[in-house]
Computed example of a mutant assay.
Amino acid sequence: MSRYERWNALLELLAEHGKLDVEEAAGALDVSAATIRRDLDQLARQQMVTRTRGGAVAHSVSYDLPLRYKTARNADAKQRIGALVAGLIAPGEVVGLNGGTTTTEVARALAVRPDLAEHPENGQSLTVVTNALNIANELTVRPQVKIVVTGGVARPQSYELIGPLAAQVLGELTLDTTVLGVDAIDAGHGATAHHEGEAAVNRLLAERARRVVVAADSSKLGNRAFARICGLDRVDTLVTDDQVTEELAAAFADAGVAVLKA
């Protein structure tokens, strides 16, 4: 287990229990107590936890794991999902991408598609509209991709731009396909996010598109988060991994959403 994987596991345990004991955490992660102490010291220096004698408690800030700690979760499934979603995009499309680890994999898969590099018009075969700084950073160096960044206030947990500036730009654009990463999606409640500002921008990305594709690994399915993005009536396709249960897949299909498994 890498350092970032341990940190991610510790933060998830802390989110679940509210406090951590060094010895118990060491047993849960099968590492030494000294390693856990060093990890907690590092997380405390980053203001992610508050150290206590013999352990740590959750920091008083809003508990939403930063993107850099989420990359180890279901990495293989997210890469497969990213590749499948990228294959749904036609050359010449205008594509909306919000932030998140799964949509980042979609962007990476788009970047290496050989057929996109073969479209000669202006040297660009794809336009990507995004509010995610990390995605814009990765795709800007790709000459076949035109990048449009929404503007707005950067949220450090997700690298997403939110707020009225983002809404103002999106209000002036039309998109062919929006690919949404979500914190949760439920057959009854729709797509949701932990943060209301992100949900608002994601909703606009969905509203401005002819087609909406939700890219979410199976751990997100059947769950709800705090802020609603949109109902399933706005979602055309759900791309998930092969661990989704038949019952869940059927519930989304019954709601009119095409379910693809990577």
Rank of each mutant, 00 (worst) to 15 (best):
D183A: 14
V112M: 03
A199E: 02
Y69M: 09
V22H: 01
G231T: 03
T103Y: 05
R203P: 00
V106G: 09
A249H: 04
D176S: 03
A187G: 05
G99D: 09
D21E: 12
P143Q: 01
L248D: 05
R37C: 08
A253G: 15
S158A: 13
K19S: 14
Y4W: 10
E93P: 01
A250Y: 01
P143V: 00
L13P: 02
D176F: 01
D76R: 15
A258N: 08
K78S: 12
R108Q: 15
L97N: 13
A227K: 13
P66G: 09
R210N: 13
V145D: 03
M1V: 10
G197S: 07
L67F: 10
L204M: 15
E138Y: 08
L65H: 07
Q47I: 00
L13E: 08
A72M: 12
A262V: 03
G54W: 07
V49K: 04
R142I: 10
L40Q: 05
Q47N: 13
R224H: 04
H194P: 08
T192W: 06
H119G: 10
V257P: 00
L232R: 01
I229Y: 04
M1W: 00
R53P: 04
G54M: 07
A258S: 11
A255G: 10
N8S: 15
A253N: 10
A34R: 07
L43T: 04
N74K: 12
N134D: 14
S2Y: 07
A72T: 12
A90D: 09
G188Y: 01
R6A: 04
Q157H: 09
A111F: 06
V244D: 00
T150S: 11
E24T: 15
G163L: 01
V153K: 03
L14D: 10
A251H: 08
L221F: 04
A199I: 06
L97M: 08
N202K: 15
E160M: 13
A56N: 07
N8T: 10
L260P: 08
V61S: 10
G54K: 07
A250I: 05
S60R: 12
V213G: 02
E138H: 11
T102N: 12
L221I: 08
E198Y: 07
G18V: 09
R203H: 15
L84S: 11
P120D: 14
D183R: 13
H119P: 02
F252G: 02
R155Q: 13
R68W: 11
R224C: 05
N137Q: 14
V112G: 02
R155M: 08
G100T: 02
G188T: 07
A216W: 12
N74F: 12
S62P: 06
E93K: 00
T240D: 08
N122L: 14
V201W: 09
L161T: 07
R73P: 04
L67N: 11
Y4M: 11
L40M: 03
V31Y: 11
D64Y: 14
Q124S: 13
V213S: 04
V141D: 14
T245Q: 06
A107H: 09
V129P: 01
A72I: 01
R3P: 08
L126I: 02
V257F: 05
N74V: 09
V259L: 05
A28E: 09
T178N: 11
L97Q: 13
L110M: 09
R210S: 15
F226A: 11
R208D: 06
Q47F: 10
E247C: 00
V112C: 03
A26F: 01
K19I: 00
H194N: 12
A28C: 02
